[in-house]
Each structure stands twice: as structure tokens, then as C-alpha cells.
Amino acid sequence: MNELLNKLAVAIARGKVNQKSPFPPDMKGEFGADELTKQALEESVAPAAILNDGLMIGMKTVGDKFESGKAFIPDMLIAAKAMNVAMVHLKPFFDSGEVELKGDFILGTVAGDLHDIGKNIVRMVLTGNGWNVIDLGTDVKPEQFIETLKEYPNAVIGMSALLTTTMMQMETTTTAIKEVSPDTKIYIGGAPISQEFSDKIGADGYFPDPNKFAKHLASVV
């Protein structure tokens, strides 16, 4: 069983999606995350073990490399693709409550801003780290965050902005959310953002690195 989960962790870390996938070239023809997850379930490996001892280990491997400068954003995204494929097999167990995700995370690019690549990277990394990410997309108004928070009252909120002009919407949105739900954690990110700005607008933190952010979330929630 351990060997199977180890293989699964490697498939995730290397971004081996399935047997047909030509990537990575040195794993051509080998089983990928798709087949290995299916096989693990068929061999009655507990879904929680597949998630925690296989998939998450693979994501942690690539995340650690990222932090030490030996991997880059694309490596995490390639791993996230393999993770997504594996998660399809685990979805019924999440739906039934047999396996629990780390929590709910509401994510969006603030009102007025249409840029989404940074937000998308955060979504992919957090999903790969076991979060249920509710992605509201771009140009998200304060009331949309608040409405979604009613549905997921324990959720953490993440906001993104690319421009110095639209980052000001983060203050409006943070104020509006904190008014109705003062204990909700709000994190912000994006090219023009700084910790100073986060402090100024009353957000709970700023992270320029999605992997460090995922680790921080795991430590505080």
C-alpha cells in the first residue's frame, strides 16, 4: 500500500496525469495520478490516506522545492493538474463527508479588476493543498463576497488585484465584510500589494508566495 501511495505522490509531484500523457517524457507509458488513485481505491486504501499520504505528499514535495528556489510556478501548476484528476475519484467521499477538506476558501479578484492569473494560481495551489475553493471570478463586488460568506460562514476570504487603482477596492471590500463578520479572516495578494497596505486596510495578511500562504492557512485555521 505504501508503495502505491509513494508512486501516487511521485506522479503528483512530477505532474504525471495519466498513462496516455506524454509528460513528463521520462515517465512515458507509466501510470499517472488518474490510474494510481483508481487502483488505490480498488485496493481498498482509505480515501483519507490517499489524500493525506499520497496526493498531499506529492504537492508538499513540489511546494518545498518551490520555497527553496528549485521549482517555479509552472511546476506547481503541472502538479495541480495531476491533483485535479486524482480528486475527481475522491469527490464522492468529499460529498459524503467521509473525507474532509481543510476548509472553505472564498476567492475573487476585486471589483473593477479583470486580471485573474494570480488569483488562478492561488486557487490551484490551495485546491492542491486540500481546500474547497469557491472561486467568484473577476470584478467581484463586496456584496458578492458577503453573499457567498452566508453560504460558507466559516470560510476564509482571499482577494486579488493587479492595479494600484483597483487595489483600493480591497479596502472597501474588507470594511464591508468585517462589518458583517468581524472574525472572518481576509487575505490579500497581487502585484501592487504589500504587508503595509494589508495592515492599513484592516486585512489579516498579505502573501506574495502561494505556497507560503497555503502553509500559513494550515497553521492558523
Binding site: 501548476l77 492569473i117 488562478n120
Partner: peptide, 13 residues
């Protein structure tokens, strides 16, 4: 690509 191929989403951008 969004949602199913994170690398392609990023590289496409």
C-alpha cells in the same frame, strides 16, 4: 483551459 489545465492557463496568459 481554466479549471482543468492550470499550466496551460498560466502559459497561455
Amino acid at each position: 483551459f481554466y479549471g482543468n489545465d492550470p499550466f496551460a492557463t498560466y502559459a497561455g496568459d
